[in-house]
Amino acid sequence: MGLVRRGDEEFVEFAGANSARLQRAAYLLTGDRHQAEEAAQAALVRVYASWGRVRRKDPYAYARTVLANLVTDQWRRPIREYATDEVPERALPRDVADDVTRRRWLIGALQTLSPRERTVVVLRHFFDATEVDVARELNLSLGTVKSLNSRALAKLRVSIPSPRRAQSGVRP
């Protein structure tokens, strides 16, 4: 590659530091490794195209927003997809399940959520975005985000810890 435009080095640094995370998020959103790579790459293309504008703001937030909306736009196309309330049973009781099995179960269960529920969960709990940010980035009301998040976690049978439990680490 030739001499790069002003700010390109910053972009390369940004992309290098975040492409793996974006791909992983894309995989969570799509459930398909090839689509994940394509979506992450497409998101970075758009980030680069807007780099002059976003580089001094929050390029990471911009990237995750672009990614989420790219994937969501695909869902808006007439592709049949059926969200279901039927989440597969956990393969093994928690106490004896190995980590890989449990992670695999959770990722599989994630794919049973509706697209909007899944997107909210990924933005909220993978990217650690606040509910306010998720609402803004997905152009949803805060109440809708809270509702989607709550419903999704219920489907995943993920209990939200109370502050005391979270601090003490005590399991129910």
Partner: peptide, 22 residues
């Protein structure tokens, strides 16, 4: 670790997917 931590841990490890260099 609680359920939410498990979910976050699972999402960050994705056993069946390893990102590739773009």
């Amino acid at each position: 670790m609680n359920d939410l931590d498990d979910l976050r841990d699972a999402m960050h490890s994705t056993p069946d997917f390893e990102p590739k260099p773009l």
